[in-house]
């Protein structure tokens, strides 16, 4: 990790992106004081991250892969974390347990990956800590629970909590984040507003044709058309697809493949691979 400076503000959902090995988890572990920076310092609301008794009063954390004490039930683990943690809204916690459909009377050893993640999510969202650090928190959740999670993130933001969300899921980031940072090879590549990213979003389209390549010059929303050879043409589409599809209809097109680029690709595409 080098030269990383990030500011996250109250009432903001901050997305944290990057390819595997970019240093996302390392950053989070430094924020938690589990590892130390070789130089420089990490501060959480002005407290040194290594001084966890102070720094951890300001935060709650959900790891990517939640491990729990197998003999304790979900309720017992929530109790332990509430009593040692930075304070909990018990009524809201009960509500969250209901929304996530979590069975608290089972021992953690019998929980699936998703259920273990729910325990950690309920414990984190129920705190009134000003910062929630979530490291790929929904990898084990089904789509319905993903919706419950997004609602909880929005509620936390509306309460004025800052949410630091490391995620690979484009939809999730687009749905809840206000700003996004991307990390490459241990360096911060860029920080951008979500609205700005939406403008950058382009769909990659590859069409197969039989005779001559479709001529898409001047068609609205089409950029960067390129003949890939062996009867395939690629272009990027932004905005509504209607004009491009109508234009393609006039040619002998035998197939259309459309691919949504990942947020990282959009980012890197826009800011250049050489960052």
């Amino acid at each position: 990790m080098q030269d990383l400076t990030l500011d996250v503000f109250p009432g903001e959902v901050f997305g944290f992106l990057g390819p595997n090995g970019a240093g996302k988890s390392t950053t989070i572990r430094m924020m938690l004081g589990a590892i130390r920076p070789t130089s420089g310092r990490v501060q959480i609301f002005g407290d040194d991250a290594a001084d966890v008794r102070r720094a951890h009063r300001h935060l709650a954390y959900v790891p990517a892969d939640v491990a729990l004490w197998p003999r304790l039930t979900g309720a017992e683990i929530l109790e332990l974390l509430a009593r040692t943690g930075p304070g909990v809204d018990v009524a809201y916690r009960t509500e969250l347990v209901g929304r996530f459909g979590l069975d608290l009377d089972r021992r953690a050893g019998t929980y699936s990956t998703g259920n273990r993640q729910k325990v950690a999510l309920v414990a984190a969202f129920a705190t009134r800590a000003p910062l929630l650090v979530l490291d790929e928190p929904t990898s084990g959740l089904d789509p319905l629970m993903e919706q419950v999670f997004r609602a909880a993130v929005v509620e936390a933001r509306d309460r004025g909590q800052a949410v630091f969300l490391s995620s690979h899921l484009l939809g999730e980031v687009q749905a809840v984040c206000d700003r996004v940072a991307i990390l490459r090879e241990g360096r911060l590549a860029e920080v951008a507003q979500m609205a700005e990213l939406r403008r950058l979003r382009r769909t990659e389209v590859v069409v197969s044709y039989v005779e001559s390549p479709p001529d898409l010059a001047g068609v609205a929303g089409v950029q960067g058309a390129e003949d890939l050879g062996s009867g395939r043409l690629r272009f990027f589409l932004s905005g509504a697809p209607g004009p491009a599809l109508r234009a393609l209809g006039g040619f002998g097109v035998t197939g259309v493949e459309m691919r949504e680029p990942s947020l990282e690709e959009i980012f890197l595409d826009y800011y250049g691979r050489g960052v």
Binding site: V52, H56, R57, P63, A67, L68, I77, T84, G85, P86
Partner: peptide, 10 residues
């Protein structure tokens, strides 16, 4: 197992 406990002010 102790990751969650370590994230509290302990």
């Amino acid at each position: 197992r102790s990751v969650l406990l370590m994230a509290t002010p302990v």
